[in-house]
Each structure stands twice: as C-alpha cells, then as structure tokens.
C-alpha cells in the first residue's frame, strides 16, 4: 500500500530520527511512503503570522503536487505540517473565498487542485487505518516494566478535530499500549509546549515545558512519547535549562512514538536513530 508523504523541513534536520523510525516501522508493516516530489514548506506559524493567505497557498501547492501524481492520501509525520495541510484542505472544501484564492495562486504556476486529496497524520494511519491488530502482530519484543506518558501536543487534533479528540486524544495511548508498555494517564497530553515561540518568548515557554515535565515525573514516567518534531526538541533539549530555571532535576527521555513502536517490533536500532536525544534513551533502548 503506497501513500504520498509530506516529510516537512525538520525531517531533513532536527527530526531525522522521527522520519527514519516512521519509515522503518511502516516498512515493517508493509506500507510504503512516497515523498511528494518537490514539496515545499507548509509555512507553519511564522508564515501564517506574516501573511495568513500565503500559508494556505503554500499548503495548496503541496496538495496539488500530490494530486497531480495520482495520490488520494497524503501522510504527514510533523504535527505542524499536518495542521497546516489539513487547514488548507478544510478551507478548500468549505470556504468558497479561500478556495478561489488558492485556485488563483495555483493557476499562476500552471497548477490546479481538485480537492481529491485527504491529509492524514501518521498516527491516524497506524491506529485507524492499519489498525491495532496489524500493529500487535508486528510486536516481537514487548516492552516490560516501562512506563510511558503519551504527549500529543496541541496541533494533532486542533483545530480541525479530524481524527482524534482535540483535548483528550487516545490514538497514541492505543498505539503505545500495543508495545506492552504501561501507558499512564497524562492530563497535560494536549497542552501546548510553546515550541513556536521558544526562541523568542523563552521565559514564558520554559514554564509551559516545566508543567509537562512535572506531570510526567510525578506519574513516574520512564519515557515521554511524542508525535511532533517541535515537541520533541522543546521537551528534550531544554530540560537542562528548565532545571536551572526552576531548581528541578528532570531527566526524562523524550522519544517519538514511532521509535518506541520500532523497539517493540525488534527493528534494527540503527534504523530507529535512538542516539539523537539530548537526554539519553537509556534502559528502554537496551531491552
């Protein structure tokens, strides 16, 4: 089964581990992702803030490229890309003015979009399309005595409420439970980590990160599992700074849920890129 794939800019850089583990896990499940040829940046929060219309047109180009190549579904790993592409898809379907704008922008480059493409997050693909049984069948080395909190971040179910609950999502809980790990309750699972303004409003954002780390530590989590590149970087790379700022001593590995799945599926650790986190993945990896 083949799907179009929107990697997003960070997959070539800060979240290479997400891409590598996602592709490895899907390959083991018999799914091939094929990169949209010549895809462009989704624009994310920054372009939306400077030129809201441009960000929608940027996403429309990606959807048009996938459609032109004959795909009907685009799979996205990054939550921000997902949110932006889904937003463009939704506006295209429901808002005539926005549709006209997107069509006009595409026309200037000789492209068009017919609205035939649906955007899907990789979590949606795994849990709701491939299904828990198929995931469970691939687990060969179940995780024992590992406690995990699933942290979804803000953009997975928002604003479109497309495949999971916008405030208390459950899809990652389900995917992680299949690995044999103990999946803990996590009330801050859809709170925002402030990733988009970490470089510009750091003091305020460290507080948001601290709250998430606090609950994870309080519940006794060995690992925080994430599904977004910015969440991963924010929770992982800034733990030292949080500790300095708040007098805490957090040291919780932050892994992509695809890495956790890959470990339980017994995949080659090289393909899961487990050595790239600031806080070492530790004993989860050595099982």
């Amino acid at each position: 089964m083949n799907y179009a794939y929107m990697p997003g800019c960070s997959s070539h850089s800060s979240s290479r581990d997400y891409e590598m583990s996602a592709l490895a896990v899907l390959k083991a499940l018999g799914v091939q992702l094929e990169e949209i040829k010549d895809w462009n940046c989704c624009g994310s929060t920054p372009v939306s803030s400077v030129a809201p219309v441009t960000s929608m047109a940027l996403s429309a180009r990606n959807l048009a490229l996938a459609e032109e190549a004959g795909y009907r579904e685009v799979v996205v790993t990054c939550s921000s890309c997902y949110s932006m592409l889904k937003r463009a898809e939704t506006y295209y379907r429901n808002d005539p003015a926005a549709r006209e704008m997107m069509a006009g922008a595409l026309k200037t480059m000789g492209r068009q979009f017919e609205g035939m493409v649906t955007v899907k997050h990789i979590l949606e693909l795994m849990v709701y399309h491939l299904g828990p049984e198929r995931l469970a069948a691939a687990v060969t080395k179940p995780l024992k005595d590992v406690k995990i909190v699933p942290y979804y971040g803000c953009l997975l179910g928002r604003p479109q409420k497309a495949f999971d609950d916008p405030e208390t999502p459950t899809s990652m809980d389900e995917a992680l439970r299949i690995t044999g790990a103990e999946v803990l309750r996590f009330d801050r699972k859809s709170k925002c980590c402030g990733g988009s303004v970490m470089l510009t409003k750091q003091k305020a954002v460290l507080r948001l990160v601290e709250e998430i780390l606090w609950e994870a530590a309080d519940r006794g989590a060995d690992v925080i599992a994430v599904a977004c590149p910015l969440c991963q970087l924010n929770l992982d790379a800034y733990q030292t700074r949080v500790n300095a700022e708040f007098g805490t001593s957090y040291r919780i590995p932050v892994l992509y849920f695809t890495q956790v799945l890959g470990i339980a599926m017994g995949l080659d650790k090289k393909h899961l890129a487990l050595g790239k986190t600031f806080v070492p993945a530790g004993r989860v990896v050595n099982i």
């Binding site: 949110s83 928002r158 604003p159």
Partner: peptide, 12 residues
C-alpha cells in the same frame, strides 16, 4: 497578539 502560541485551544 505576539504572545499567542497558536495551540488552538480557544478555537476548539
């Protein structure tokens, strides 16, 4: 207007 982290909690 510059403090918003674009988490869409208000929106949903």
């Amino acid at each position: 207007i510059w403090q918003c982290v674009s988490c869409y909690a208000c929106t949903v």
